[in-house]
């Protein structure tokens, strides 16, 4: 924790929920020291250490890498470790669990649905003719081939994009931004041959066509993955597929 001197105090209204008590969730107000170099996660840890040990939240690396500390800060999905108090001071801030997920306790939500969606798009390299023996050497890739998918591979699974997407809230089965961006990451990889398998999920009713292009998934992404771009690019590629199948002689298949 930082050693700077406090320059006043700041009020945090934190979402509290105790499943064992059978009561509705409520907001609890805490006063924390305001320090210029403090982030929301520092404030939450201060509360847990100094005033209320029952406050429950997830965190790990506190440096924007692990993706565990996602919370709603004044209604906007943020990593708790990257949202500075100084950007809100002197106004109070309201901290809630990420939207569009079931809440287990306080700021901790249930992420099972997200993990299922991630798995469903087969986020691994699918080889065309099986794995070649090690003695045959590496699968080489040029910098240009790598650049095609690099941005989409930066995802840390923080789920901020799911919290920012109203479609995820309205259509719980929607694959969602991060899973589709990851599918696109593998589809664009020159070493991969799994696109056709993934299309069954990605281009299904619960896939890319649910997206109405609100674009907030990309706006809140701490790693600049641009899932909204990935989804629109996948829509474009699927549309090209359809035109090939319907209009091209032999369904354009010999080209694949």
């Amino acid at each position: 924790m930082a050693n700077s001197t406090p320059e006043g105090t700041m009020r945090l209204e934190v979402f509290r929920y105790f499943p064992e008590k059978g009561e509705e969730p409520h907001f609890q107000t805490y006063e924390v020291p305001f320090r210029k170099d403090w982030v929301v996660l520092d404030a939450l840890n201060y509360i847990k250490d100094q005033s209320d040990g029952s406050l429950t939240f997830r965190w790990s690396c506190r440096m924007g890498v692990c993706g565990s500390c996602g919370v709603m800060v004044n209604g906007v999905p943020k990593l708790g470790c990257s949202a500075f108090l100084r950007d809100y001071y002197p106004n109070p801030i309201r901290v809630e669990p990420l939207a569009n997920f079931p809440v287990l306790r306080d700021l901790v939500f249930q992420l099972d649905s997200f993990l299922e969606k991630l798995k469903s798009i087969q986020p691994w390299i699918v080889r065309r003719d099986g794995e070649k023996p090690v003695s045959d050497g590496e699968y080489l890739q040029t910098p240009a081939q790598h650049a095609r998918f690099k941005d989409f591979s930066m995802c840390i699974n923080c789920m901020l994009c799911y919290a920012a997407c109203p479609v995820v809230g309205m259509e719980p089965h929607f694959l969602g931004p991060a899973a589709i961006a990851l599918a696109q990451r593998y589809n664009l990889d020159s070493r991969d041959a799994g696109r056709e398998q993934r299309q069954e999920t990605v281009s299904s009713h619960d896939g890319i066509w649910q997206c109405t292009f609100i674009g907030q998934c990309s706006a809140v992404c701490p790693k600049h993955v641009d899932p909204a771009g990935a989804i629109q690019q996948a829509k474009l590629a699927s549309t090209v597929d359809w035109f090939k199948e319907v209009l091209w002689p032999f369904g354009g298949r010999e080209k694949r």
Binding site: P19, P25, A99, N100, P166, G169, M170, Q216
Partner: peptide, 21 residues
Amino acid sequence: TIPANWWLRRSPPWWLRRRPY
């Protein structure tokens, strides 16, 4: 658990809560 739609069910409707929406 609190159902996943706790956020959407609130008023005002989601698209009145933030400028980009």
